[in-house]
């Protein structure tokens, strides 16, 4: 559901203040965090969606990597997961469901967590995802509310997975785009989060349905700072720009664009396809986190050692607070 629609509905639902709720719905963060005791806080998150690739095993892996990502984005470690399944068991071969669940299980294993059960619903359209529970030390919690002026922004996966998923549905994505994007979508954000934690990062989010600029805008608002992106520095999947220019833009990108219209400004030379890419809803996108300026090389090197190809994509500024600015290149 688009961010605008959702916000309107949630306004009419009672809020539940609690002393122990470290992160609740009001900052639109990736997961809820509940303080258990001085040493431990519980992280809870859920995410499921319709198939975005034809291969059911790969779809299971991507859905699980996506659901687990919210725990990593908070600085936590996943402990348990529950499958959420919608499936037309009388219409589709049950072997497909087995492959989806196998893909999910393999990713949960890779994350060092366990699947403890799940719930299935008969539905004409298959959907899969997981509810994940994790744990974090309250002092190590990473939230989207702590970006500080003078820091730079690190992004750990390229953009364009929504556009490429749309192109896959249309049969118009080239093999290179499909291969690169699906492999990255199936990759856990675990290594990226571990590097961020080692560096003492406290401000992090993962880039998913609201697109890079949507999640950045939440970070800006929650942190009371502004974010400036350098377009040329942002990694993009092969062909994603061309595909966007050909109209293979998911509806979510348009919803994100209209929701963010008065919080984002673009330099005059940023074209429409480039803007679409920045609003493109990501499936299992990368982490977006901040490090103090001057430490970015160390951070990128450590990420590279762990097999994560990340980039420095922008900076945190004091003014205008709560807003996003996109310029073409970094100005010193």
């Amino acid at each position: 559901m688009g961010p605008g629609t959702l916000a309107k509905i949630l306004e009419q639902v009672p809020q539940m203040p609690s002393d122990r709720l470290l992160v609740g719905p009001e900052t639109s963060d990736d997961a809820g965090v509940y303080l258990l005791d001085q040493e431990r806080a519980l992280i809870q998150t859920i995410d499921f969606f319709t198939p975005i690739v034809d291969d059911p095993y790969l779809f299971g892996q991507i859905a699980a990597a996506n659901a687990l990502s919210d725990v990593y984005a908070m600085g936590g470690m996943p402990l348990t997961a529950m499958n959420v399944v919608c499936f037309p068991s009388r219409k589709l071969d049950l072997g497909i469901l087995r492959e989806i669940l196998r893909g999910g299980a393999d990713k949960v294993l890779e994350a060092g967590a366990v699947v403890v059960g799940g719930h299935t619903v008969e539905d004409p359209e298959p959907k899969y995802g997981l509810a994940v529970t994790g744990i974090v030390h309250p002092d190590k919690l990473m939230t989207n509310a702590r970006a500080q002026p003078g820091e730079v922004l690190i992004l750990t996966k390229p953009l364009g997975s929504g556009i490429i998923s749309t192109a896959i549905k249309a049969g118009m994505a080239g093999p290179e785009a499909v291969q690169t994007a699906t492999a990255a979508m199936a990759a856990l954000n675990r290594a990226a989060a571990e590097v961020a934690l080692k560096l003492g990062v406290r401000s992090c989010t993962d880039v998913t349905g609201f697109g890079l600029l949507g999640h950045a805008a939440e970070m800006a608002l929650a942190s009371g700072a502004g974010l400036r992106f350098w377009l040329e520095a942002i990694p993009v999947y092969p062909q994603a720009l061309e595909l966007a220019a050909m109209g293979l833009v998911p509806g979510g990108a348009y919803a994100n664009r209209s929701f963010l219209a008065d919080r984002v400004s673009f330099a005059g030379d940023v074209n429409e396809a480039e803007q679409d890419l920045l609003f493109d809803p990501q499936t299992s996108g990368g982490l977006l986190f901040t490090v103090p300026a001057g430490r970015e090389e160390e951070c990128l090197n450590r990420l590279r050692e762990r097999g994560v190809l990340a980039a420095v994509v922008g900076e945190v500024v004091a003014e205008p607070a709560g807003r996003i600015e996109v310029v073409r290149v970094r100005r010193s």
Partner: peptide
Amino acid sequence: DNETARDNVVKFVQS
């Protein structure tokens, strides 16, 4: 019948 389809078809035609 919707803006997303309108914008995407126009982009395709122009491309």
